[in-house]
Design a protein around this nucleic acid. Sequence first.
DNA 1: CCCGGATATGTGGAAAACCACAATACCGGC
DNA 2: GCCGGTATTGTGGTTTTCCACATATCCGGG
Lengths: 197, 197
Amino acid sequence: MPEPDIHLVDDDASTGDACRFLLEGYGYGVTYWSAGTDFLAGATLEAAGCVILDLRMPRMDGTAVHAALRERRSPLGVVILTAHGDVPTAVEQMKQGAADFLQKPVNGTRLIAAVDTALARSRSAWEVRILAQRATTLSERERHVARLVRDGLTNRAIAERLHVAVRTVEVHRAAAMRKMGAHSSAELAALWQRVAD
Amino acid sequence: MPEPDIHLVDDDASTGDACRFLLEGYGYGVTYWSAGTDFLAGATLEAAGCVILDLRMPRMDGTAVHAALRERRSPLGVVILTAHGDVPTAVEQMKQGAADFLQKPVNGTRLIAAVDTALARSRSAWEVRILAQRATTLSERERHVARLVRDGLTNRAIAERLHVAVRTVEVHRAAAMRKMGAHSSAELAALWQRVAD
DNA sequence: CCCGGATATGTGGAAAACCACAATACCGGC
DNA sequence: GCCGGTATTGTGGTTTTCCACATATCCGGG
């Protein structure tokens, strides 16, 4: 993986350096961005990883960057840093999926724990994102069959429900498996469960 | 379902009444408890539903009640109310799974939205809890086979990996299906994916 | 000792999954 | 018109799933 594990977005370079020093001491690779716009324009948002966002930044604040990541369905895990946080903002960011919301001065142990949580979540989100993308390649019919396979119905039962021949169900099922990268119905069921229609 | 949808735990009866009035206006059944200890001792914690907890209470505060619910793996969704909240507490409660953390005086629309979110999550958590309980009835061997089924391996491949006969794998798989309430391998795979080893 | 649960295995057979090869029809894009 | 995708269906055959019936061993609890 050529991308670094951690992105650090903070207009204050001294805070940025302190955090980078701490994280690099733990073996993480860190890329520093002084503005959210630069980060969004320059980073690979489709990769798994973690981004530490400072809440208050001049041109684009941390909540706006976080919102942009969500809009683009980026799997990057988010940790918010702030010198002056208020409860509604903290709660909202957590509800939007931030792994943590830390106040400055930052406690090193907490920051590392938050980053680890964000990275773990990001790995899982990355996998689910891949699966979700594959799911978009399925036709409506194939999706319906995949759903019923997930629910444990036999081809015959599915055929009766959809008023088609068993062979037709087999064809749709095979196509769904191929597109999702599954090698058996059981695997398709598990993958579909993961995507969660 | 004999249990009410919503539990309201607040030592201040006037706030309690206001919230109850609002919620009952939306058709929710509400049970009021003036203390966390009463709620924990008297409510059915294994049911799906929502509990609105006031943060500051004399004998047992809202965070302690929430912690008790988590320790007992209750599927009840949690909404925290507080007159004086601080950022670290808010963030911690959200990390512990609270659906929302609202400051008093409570905005009715927000409260209803929070309750709806908590209820939806609770339903799903209830289902997963049932599955997790069933999973505890599986032997180690059965669990291992279920995991490999979830990964899409054939009985033959599993047998080779475990150095046993195919027939043995079938027996374990059948037992796992029976205990999990699945009627096919595909269904077992999906259910196991949901429990997530 | 008996019983239940866990683990292991064999035999024989039905049901289900999986699919190559083949065909038809419709739609949209080049 | 040709091509690719979607939807539908048939034939014939192999592989896999599922399981009744049966057997054996070990362990713990009543």
